[in-house]
Design a protein around this nucleic acid. Structure first.
Lengths: 197, 197
DNA sequence: ACACGAAAAGAACGATCGTGCTATAACTGA
DNA sequence: TCAGTTATAGCACGATCGTTCTTTTCGTGT
């Protein structure tokens, strides 16, 4: 990997952390330069525009998300076990962020009414994520662990709701029982998906 | 009401809409002045600082929230009926926002790691809101509609999760079935709160 | 209707924004 | 090691930021 790619990656990693804290829009080039110890123009030379940087931040985060959350789940056995790994991996991913939590969660409400290519990229990522949850839940159906009339999209919606709630309880409210809360809600969700409607 | 109070209120109403769209931090005085047709300094004279304006926006929004969401619920009969009104009123409140949705939801992820008096005010409001949900759920317990070992805080957590998810589905994903989704999730929540654990 | 206080505008401040252009410094392949 | 590319810094730009001041306009009580 050339020197350019190396620093470029370092910038993206740092930018991801900053963006999670102050938002993709709130983040500024100057602020980012200060954090990385580079000059504003030296840093900026790696990207075509701030908007392009924002999109690359999302791409970079997505790659790490797949590595740390999706891949472990796909290596677990199909069914509820895989769903558990997916969920636990997400919680771990979210907790691992020193500040700001999951960037996708933060960006979701920041960009929800700000049209443009950044929002479009985020929408694609979020759709993929919901689809992934639904697909994994589907393996629990085909394994006979979930009832076979389960609405997979509705299940994904409700599981995703827990991730949003966890970020809220953990990051905003600093609820010491946040982890316990989200796990109990998850178990309740799984239990009811297994019983007949 | 004097002229000053009148425009001040008009500013806050407009500012609430702007803040819901671009965030409490993303909103600027100049932008706000343009939206209200006032000069920057004329508008700014009504507030001590931008931070003070942000706090007043939250206070103003809170007042309207109590009027439009909390009060109707308290006028409904105790129990599940009251809980339904509370939830339906929130959905109506959220849908009524032309853009950006519920300001509290938007601000929650924006301020979750930005310490200061604005965050503190928001945390108080969100705690009050969760407490309100738990209290209303409690009336359903004492009316015998919910099982009496129901964890009220956990119930509030899960109901609140649905409001976050609805904003996500409705505003970001523009899911045409968002309303249907959130209602089904709500019914499911109520049903399970009524059955023995 | 007039005077006085309140409300709004005008103008300017230092700072920082995103973004170019130009020069220097640092890598890299022959 | 030297040439040539690539990466970074320096500097400046117009615009806008939050904020303060002074001046003008307007609403209001008598």
């Amino acid at each position: 990997m050339s020197k350019g790619d190396e620093t470029r990656r370092a910038i993206l990693t740092e930018a991801t952390a900053v963006a999670a804290r102050v938002g993709l829009t709130g983040m500024t080039i100057g602020q980012l330069a200060a954090h990385t110890g580079m000059s504003k123009s030296g840093l900026y030379a790696h990207f075509a525009s701030k908007e392009a940087l924002q999109i690359e931040i999302l791409r970079h985060t997505r790659e790490r998300f797949v590595d740390q959350v999706v891949r472990p789940a796909l290596q677990a056995p199909r069914g509820v076990a895989r769903l558990r790994v997916l969920f636990d991996s997400w919680v771990t991913w979210s907790e691992a962020m020193e500040e700001g939590g999951c960037l996708f969660v933060a960006a979701s409400s920041e960009l929800d009414d700000q049209p443009g290519p950044v929002r479009d990229a985020l929408v694609r990522d979020e759709r993929d994520w919901l689809e992934m949850i639904a697909t994994v839940a589907g393996t629990a159906v085909s394994e006979g662990e979930f009832r076979d009339d389960l609405d997979l999209e509705q299940f994904a919606y409700e599981l995703h709701a827990l991730t949003l709630a966890h970020q809220h309880a953990s990051r905003l409210l600093r609820d010491p029982h946040a982890l316990d809360r989200v796990h109990r809600a998850f178990e309740s969700l799984i239990t009811h998906a297994g019983q007949p409607a």
